[in-house]
């Protein structure tokens, strides 16, 4: 915008400027921007013209140009202004909505209950171990040491006790393209993404590992037993009603070489290779010497039956082989180990 040339005052003198387009001295030719008086007035005279007029009046009357800034009315006005600012800031600040409050409360409740559940699980594990020790002690006193070995085998097969040994670790993760979404914690869109590991994939892989002769299988630290279920809820993989987060680490105990040799050509292995090839799902199969799978704290007694003839005279006649599931045959034959299905279809 062209600066008006005839205005002698600098920026500090704008209050005394002429009023838009009406020239103070009529001889001046009209400004080139006379049609834009509104913008000119806004840009060139930001100060209230009233200040200059009042000052002029006061100087004409023999008073100092400026009044005091400490008059009552100014202070009152300042207080009102501060009050206005505070009130506006407080009432216009976006308030947390009711939904957000409820959500945070739910989150805290979920977290609290999860902690509680973890504590209870640890309790169960400790108590189970205690029970086992007491049972073993009882059996040893009753002279049934051969039964102890049998019970140990059965317990291992039923997945009640933690197992450590050599085995394979299979890590599954979503394809790279869909990984970002999962990391960001976006809400599931409802649509199925091809690059995500689904519960069906895990079921096939786990069943393949069982079939390859795995003695104990766990996913992300959850022991899979013959009654475990791998399900899909929304977009989350649920194992025994506990949601898992990616990556999914499947630990299968058994002789690593045999397991690998039998798993890779099997249906599960081929399926896994295809997942990797077609959808970019990341998988990694590695052997380990000392892998451990925890016991299933959710195991309950389903079936108890007397085993053979009652022992001796002092032994408890009701010594039973407890299995966590009716589907596990109470036998130690190695062939039976591959049979149980580790996963239910949802």
């Amino acid at each position: 915008m062209s600066e008006p040339v005839r205005s002698p005052g600098d920026d500090r003198n704008l209050g005394s400027d002429d009023n838009g387009g009406t020239g103070g001295n009529g001889s001046a030719k009209p400004r080139p921007d006379a049609s834009m008086t509104l913008i000119t007035a806004v840009l060139e005279r930001p100060l209230e013209p009233g200040y200059q007029e009042a000052a002029d009046r006061r100087t004409a009357g023999g008073l100092p140009a400026a009044t005091s800034t400490r008059t009552v009315i100014v202070v009152v006005m300042a207080i009102i202004t501060g009050f206005l600012f505070a009130v506006a800031a407080q009432s216009l600040r976006p308030k947390p909505t009711a939904a957000a409050t409820v959500k945070s409360e739910l989150v805290s409740r979920i977290e609290g209950l999860q902690t509680h559940g973890a504590t209870q699980e640890a309790n169960i594990v400790a108590l189970t171990r205690q029970v086992h020790d007491l049972e073993a002690l009882e059996l040893a006193q009753a002279g049934g040491s051969d039964l102890t070995a049998k019970i140990n085998t059965l317990e291992r097969q039923a997945g009640i006790v933690a197992v450590t040994g050599p085995g394979l670790t299979l890590t599954l993760d979503d394809a790279v393209s869909s990984g970002g979404n999962a990391d960001a914690g976006n809400r599931p869109t409802g649509g199925f993404e091809a690059g995500r590991v689904s519960s069906a994939d895990l079921q096939v892989v786990v069943n393949g590992l069982w079939a390859a002769g795995a003695e104990a299988v766990g996913i992300n630290g959850h022991r899979l037993t013959s009654t475990s279920a791998i399900r899909f809820a929304g977009q989350a993989v649920i194992v025994d009603f506990r949601p898992l987060t990616r990556p999914y680490t499947v630990t299968a105990l058994g002789d690593p070489d045999t397991l690998r040799a039998r798993f890779e050509p099997s249906f599960g292995g081929v399926y896994l290779a295809q997942l990797t090839k077609e959808f970019g799902i990341q998988s990694d199969l590695s052997a380990g010497d000392s892998l451990s799978v925890p016991g299933d704290p959710g195991a309950r007694l389903f079936v108890a039956e007397p085993l053979g003839a009652p022992l001796g005279n002092a032994g408890a006649p009701s010594v039973s082989t407890a299995t966590s599931a009716p589907t596990t045959p109470p036998t130690t034959s190695p062939a039976a180990q591959g049979v149980p299905t580790g996963a239910e279809t949802p």
Partner: peptide, 28 residues
């Protein structure tokens, strides 16, 4: 409220400038 705040800010800054210019007037 937001408009009132902006208008009040304008008046306040105008007053501060008038004080510095030496032409402040409380009534204005």
């Amino acid at each position: 409220l937001p408009i009132a705040v902006i208008a009040a800010l304008d008046a306040v800054f105008g007053a501060v400038r008038a004080v510095l210019d030496g032409i402040f007037n409380d009534k204005v």
